[in-house]
Design a protein around this nucleic acid. Structure first.
Lengths: 117, 117
DNA sequence: TTGCTCCTCACGTCACGTGAGGTGGC
DNA sequence: TTGCTCCTCACGTCACGTGAGGTGGC
């Protein structure tokens, strides 16, 4: 199993070391292993999870909500309750997506105004 | 001169009362007047300024940066130094705009993954 | 006069940033 | 062995949220 230290994970994802340590502290992204000396070791699965987190950030989820969503996404697909919760998340995410697109439109209005000066 | 109280401004822009009071505290958006009793009174010009602020928010400016940018935008157009600073802001804003669009693309990746489950 | 809207403290929160002081590993 | 990377506190910051307790204005 190939692993990487926190610095490599940070560089590959553009996240800060502090953010990764924070995600560990609150249990959002706990490294799969540690060296005897205490260095965090991340696997490719950890990297994938972090990329999911990174994709969720623009939608404005709190770290707590991300943890819930990842828990539901990791749950077995044949569990009815989990499927229902997942469906709720999708509806919510679509609302957030619409707001993000509205934000982009606002930003473009701003750029137009700025260029017109 | 027609004015409005903080509640109306909040409702018309979707901002919280607390945010508007905060913008007043730090000098980002100071109401043009107050009643004798101390109620904030906002003009249409104040509303326009707030709409500008709202358009800047998605680009991730700090409130301090917004204040600087608004100061430059309000400066006379024939001042060479101001024009130069404005041009810098435009370059910076375009970089932020690109990042925002990248964020939207990431969000869409997330939605795809979520729907595929 | 009654509510509804507004006011000012002032402490709390969320997601980290930023040193300080110390140690692990190729 | 040297230096670069990592570690854990722990306080600071930014943009507000959230009461508490009190007052203004149609």
């Amino acid at each position: 199993m190939t692993t990487m230290q926190i610095g490599e994970l940070a560089e590959r994802t553009g996240m800060s070391l502090r953010s990764l340590r924070h995600y560990d502290e609150i249990g959002l992204l706990v490294p799969s292993a540690r060296t005897d000396g205490g260095f965090r070791l991340y696997t490719d699965a950890d990297l994938e999870r972090l990329l999911l987190i990174r994709r969720m950030k623009p939608l404005g989820y709190s770290l707590d909500e991300m943890r819930s969503l990842l828990a539901v996404a990791d749950a077995p697909t044949d569990d009815a309750a989990s499927r229902a919760r997942l469906a709720e998340f999708v509806v919510d995410a679509e609302g957030r997506r619409a707001r993000l697109e509205r934000d982009l439109a606002w930003a473009d209005e701003f750029l137009e105004l700025l260029r017109d000066r």
